[in-house]
Design a protein around this nucleic acid. Structure first.
Lengths: 227, 227
DNA sequence: ACATTTTGTGTAACTCATACACAAAATTAA
DNA sequence: TTAATTTTGTGTATGAGTTACACAAAATGT
């Protein structure tokens, strides 16, 4: 009789002020006590995988995501969990900075947004999961307009630009970037201005998801690249 | 106590003479008796996922693959297997036409290469798996040189070209295709000629995998597109 | 030898990506 | 109130890469 346990884990990214964050939890009790880890846990008998991730996220962090997709299933290292054979389906998700606020710590858990550069040694193979998720994020940013999942509904063009430069770690020419982005017709200029401390006032923009869906149906291909 | 079962399934593609095939089995006994299905089965306690796929392929079909990667984990439909809760990690693989020969049927199974266009209603959600695998194959063909996994070691340029037109269902300009393909420097011309029934004799070519690895290390990006 | 099949090759037009600089509108400091 | 600072917003010329396109060469079969 098979005794493999099935878990889900979530790599949730947040972005704010030129920094990429990942959502981590610390179980106050349990075997891998002091380690930080990704939110996740065992799948219930009568629960779909995606529901399991959402439930764990809700229970452990109270974060709601803008975007969520299956990343990879980790099950080649038999001893990735030293206690039992556990295979974990990892999901990767994006939240906007308005949600970079966490509920007060529960009795059992600490929750924190940690800068990608400062991620410590995590429990299990969770560092590997994050590495894989970052690769996916970088790749996908260039051929799907998922970056908007990391921004508030209305955003500055400069925020969008900085998001790309930050995550891809590349320079971008502002004029070319704007030209390319606008050429898809999936971004709408609003009449509102952001209140900023300094510099010329800037209009807020919105991502038109429905326009993008239309393009996708027509087989149109989003793609944004840099030298 | 969790009672979810964990399985693997394999979507294995073969290509020959302008046709794309998928490898199917038919269990002669068992509950979903007469249905054809993908090769696959439960993962053993002490077995990695990838080993499980390879073992099942070996046991059920005796086919060795040129290329194998994890595709997707199917576990959102709780009743995808009507008997038990089974979550299945699907892998997608490629074999070259020299291997499009199958061992004699075992006592328990029929095995067959079935043209993509002729795939019948399969057991479980296996049609869905194939659909997803075809999408992945089409996408990946354009940005990774995996097509060679469907060809013999030495092949004609026209075979490579036909493989692309067949799978992507698009026309290609022969001159542009050749120019682009050769521009990567990952294809080598041999001194051998193929024996064909008619037409001008054609040289055989080889895929230089090591050259491609070198390019990849240098961050070079393979990409082949069509109008 | 003539028809048929399939391979192998070059160039011109055009599209798209890239490189590049300065004025405008606000805030802050002198 | 003037000047310095910060950030937004915009156009064009060059070059690289993609696309479109046609015919001769080498074999086999009739």
């Amino acid at each position: 009789m098979q005794q493999i346990r099935l878990a889900v884990d979530a790599i949730i990214f947040g972005y704010k002020e030129m920094e990429l964050y990942v959502l981590l939890i610390q179980q106050k009790f349990g075997s891998q006590n002091s380690y930080w880890a990704l939110p996740g846990g065992l799948v219930k008998e009568d629960e779909s995988l995606i529901d399991a991730v959402k439930r764990e996220l809700q229970e452990e962090t109270n974060v709601k995501v803008n975007y969520l997709e299956q990343l990879y299933t980790f099950g080649d290292d038999i001893t990735r969990d030293p206690r039992n054979r556990v295979v974990s389906v990892a999901y990767f998700g994006l939240v906007d900075p308005t949600k970079l606020i966490l509920k007060a710590d529960t009795d059992a858990d600490n929750v924190a947004w940690v800068k990608i550069k400062n991620v410590p040694n995590l429990a299990f193979d969770h560092n590997e999961m994050i590495t894989k998720a970052i690769m996916r994020l970088k790749d996908k940013l260039t051929y799907k307009p998922i970056g908007f999942g990391l921004l508030p509904e209305k955003f500055l063009f400069s925020e969008l630009e900085n998001l790309y430069t930050t995550i891809l770690e590349k320079e971008i020419d502002r004029r070319n970037f704007r030209k390319k982005m606008l050429s898809f017709g999936i971004i709408e200029e609003t009449e509102e201005f952001a209140n900023k401390k300094s510099g010329r006032p800037a209009k807020l923009y919105k991502f038109k998801y429905s326009e993008y869906q239309k393009l996708e149906r027509d087989g149109y291909h989003f793609e944004i690249k840099f030298a």
